[in-house]
């Protein structure tokens, strides 16, 4: 294991408004290893953006320890400059004047880093060639987001922050952005990504963290989360076993003690469960002993989206007290 590039311990972020103090992040822990793509997921207001802004050095915190590349992002002076030189940030707003061209913007931004990529390198990788000499004000939304990405990577960052990088992209632009992120990943760039698109996290991330109400709910590789927290849906056609309600009653009795739900879809019985192996074993035994014919077996693993929705639904059920 490499040592973490980003470390967050017990982070607390609060906002003061006319309605009082709101705690946006409440004791969050996070650790991201070098070269990892980490996706932070959560519903609106969960604390994703607040957490990322603290890591970027754009927001102050009430408590906790935070380090990015060994430097506290709230540091000032030379340490701040040192850190800024090695991180790239894609903000939700573009922040590039509409009166200049992408070429001018990239030349201007590239000049402030110690070891920037060359202009032609970035133009080619991000695919700005068609509009590099057009005014930013005349670019489409997708072209502008590509420029944002280009400006964020021009300094050859070791750590890249992507706050909803593909919001508003059409599917092919999204695919292109994913390819770019993958190529940066292949170069060893550590990437922290927030996104609303679960398939984006599934496609890109080595690690996923789901946060809710300012706390880390679960964390792990996407596949592991799907296996541990998701409920698979098994479906099977059952022939010659009497009426469907009789079958359902027998299956329910056989599955006694295993957490599962049953539903019919035409002639197929759908069994939603986390314990697929046990369900398979019990139902096979039941079918053999009763002479029932089982056909068309299938098992579908949950998508990250289903995991996410179930986790958040669980939190909502438990969290009725506040």
């Amino acid at each position: 294991m490499t040592s973490p590039v980003m470390k967050v311990n017990d982070l607390v972020v609060e906002y003061t408004s006319s309605q009082g103090t709101i705690r946006a992040v409440n004791g969050l822990d996070l650790s991201i290893a070098e070269g990892e793509v980490y996706a932070l997921l959560g519903e609106n207001g969960a604390g994703k953006t607040s957490t990322v802004e603290v890591l970027e050095g754009h927001r102050s915190r009430v408590g906790g320890q935070v380090e990015v590349l060994g430097i506290d992002p709230s540091a000032g002076g030379p340490r701040r400059r040192e850190l800024r030189d090695q991180i790239g940030i894609v903000l939700q707003t573009s922040g590039i004047e509409s009166e200049i061209t992408p070429r001018e913007a990239l030349t201007l931004f590239g000049a402030v880093y110690r070891n920037p990529y060359s202009l032609s390198d970035v133009v080619e990788r991000v695919g700005l060639g068609d509009f590099v000499d057009q005014r930013v004000g005349s670019l489409s939304g997708g072209q502008r987001r590509r420029l944002d990405l280009a400006v964020a990577v021009i300094g050859r960052p070791r750590v890249l922050f992507l706050d909803e990088p593909t919001t508003g992209f059409d599917p092919s632009a999204r695919r292109n952005a994913w390819e770019l992120i993958r190529s940066l990943h292949a170069d060893g760039t550590t990437i922290l990504l927030t996104t609303h698109y679960l398939e984006e996290a599934e496609f890109l991330a080595d690690q996923v963290g789901v946060i809710s109400r300012g706390e880390m709910l679960v964390e792990g590789p996407p596949r592991e989360l799907q296996q541990v927290h998701g409920r698979s849906v098994m479906s099977v056609e059952i022939a010659g076993a009497g009426s469907s309600s009789d079958v359902e009653a027998s299956v329910a009795a056989v599955l006694d003690g295993i957490s599962s739900t049953l539903a019919w879809q035409g002639a197929r019985l759908l069994i939603t469960t986390e314990e697929t192996t046990k369900v398979l074993e019990r139902i096979t035994r039941w079918a053999l002993s009763t002479g029932t014919d089982l056909s068309e077996w299938s098992i579908e693993h949950p998508s990250l989206e289903q995991v996410f929705l179930e986790l958040n639904a669980g939190i909502d059920r438990e969290g009725g007290d506040d």
């Binding site: 970027e56 754009h58 400059r81 040192e82 800024r84 030189d85 991180i87 940030i89 903000l91 707003t93 573009s94 922040g95 590039i96 004047e97 931004f109 402030v112 880093y113 110690r114 400006v151 300094g155």
Partner: peptide, 17 residues
């Protein structure tokens, strides 16, 4: 105006003093 366009925030993200 540049602040509302996010330009100041963008430069604050860079090593420019």
């Amino acid at each position: 105006i540049r602040r509302e366009e996010g330009v100041l925030q963008r430069w604050r993200s860079t090593p420019l003093p």
